[in-house]
């Protein structure tokens, strides 16, 4: 069972101890293997890709001229937003439960959250197919309970995609939220209550604002991961749910237009990086506004 340390060990990390560990660690040399790997198999190919897209600058204009690309970009963003919303709604109460539970319950909960990582994403996406398809378990149960007359269309549409991706993304959301919640001093809620706040008021005036940065971090992580997602929407979505990364796949694997594929990849990369910068900006502005007030 994976366990998460619930007791912070800040006290053992005195400045002197950290300085000593730093000195005896051989410094930056230890970073080299991982850095080398990244350079060779990630940065270098990325540079080749960007160079390739730069060979035909016209392609960039094409992305903006033909409406399909921006259209798909917009739809992908909308889908990612929906997934982020679903994950937040499902993940926040779960993470809150974890932040107030006993150490043993936390270990169990973390285990439950991490368990899906042990199975391949492909297998899990097919599992959703089995559940949601026309003759699938969900439809059969609903039919047998006489809750519906004929099978619902649950998959190969937006519903299937959101179910599938949210399921994959939920652990990320929960773990990020939990990490921010477990640092919140629960005595604050007790004090808020003694000052006249109801349980609900203490929760939304004290607890929720203190998780704002965690919510922001969890949401941007899930949104950005969903934005570039490929397998699950390809399996569980219909034609309407074509995502931007699927367009890249079509260019590269079916039309064999590597240069245009490279251009689309560069555009996707750029959009996501802009989003990251924007999110950080918003968080920083929020913080400075708080300071000013």
């Amino acid at each position: 069972m994976p366990s998460i340390e619930t007791q912070p060990h800040a006290s053992r990390r005195t400045a002197a101890a950290v300085a000593f560990a730093r000195k005896s660690r051989g410094g930056l040399l230890l970073l080299l293997p991982a850095l080398g790997y990244l350079c060779l198999f990630f940065f270098l190919p990325l540079v080749f890709l960007l160079l390739q897209s730069a060979l035909t600058p016209d392609n960039y204009l094409r992305v903006f001229r033909e409406s399909v690309y921006l259209d798909v970009m917009y739809r992908t963003a909308r889908m990612s937003l929906a997934v982020t919303g679903v994950c937040l709604v499902l993940g926040y109460p779960f993470a809150y439960f974890m932040s107030t539970a006993s150490e043993r319950m936390v270990n169990v909960a973390v285990g439950v959250v991490i368990l899906p990582f042990w199975t391949s994403i492909l297998v899990r996406s097919y599992a959703w197919l089995v559940l949601l398809q026309r003759e699938g378990i969900v439809n059969k149960v609903l039919l047998n309970l006489k809750l519906i007359d004929h099978p619902l269309k649950l998959v190969y549409n937006l519903n299937g995609v959101i179910c599938g991706i949210s399921y994959i993304m939920l652990p990320y959301m929960i773990l990020v939220l939990y990490a921010s919640m477990r640092n919140i001093d629960l005595q604050l809620l007790v004090v808020a209550r003694s000052l006249g706040a109801t349980r609900l008021r203490a929760f939304y005036r004290i607890f929720v604002p203190l998780t704002a940065s965690g919510v922001m971090a969890g949401c941007s992580l899930v949104f950005i991961l969903s934005f570039g997602y490929f397998i699950t929407p390809a399996l569980l979505g219909g034609r309407e749910q074509t995502t931007f990364s699927m367009l890249i796949d079509i260019q590269m694997n079916q039309l064999l237009d590597w240069r245009f594929g490279a251009t689309l990849s560069a555009v996707l990369l750029l959009v996501i990086m802009l989003l990251v910068v924007a999110v950080r900006r918003i968080v920083r502005v929020e913080r400075s506004v708080q300071w000013i007030q």
Binding site: L188, V191, S194, L195, G196
Partner: peptide
Amino acid sequence: PIHRRNIGLVMQGYSLFPHMT
């Protein structure tokens, strides 16, 4: 219940709300 007791409480760590002035 605690919030209707009208009793002031100061705890050891002060427990000030860090996100408020």
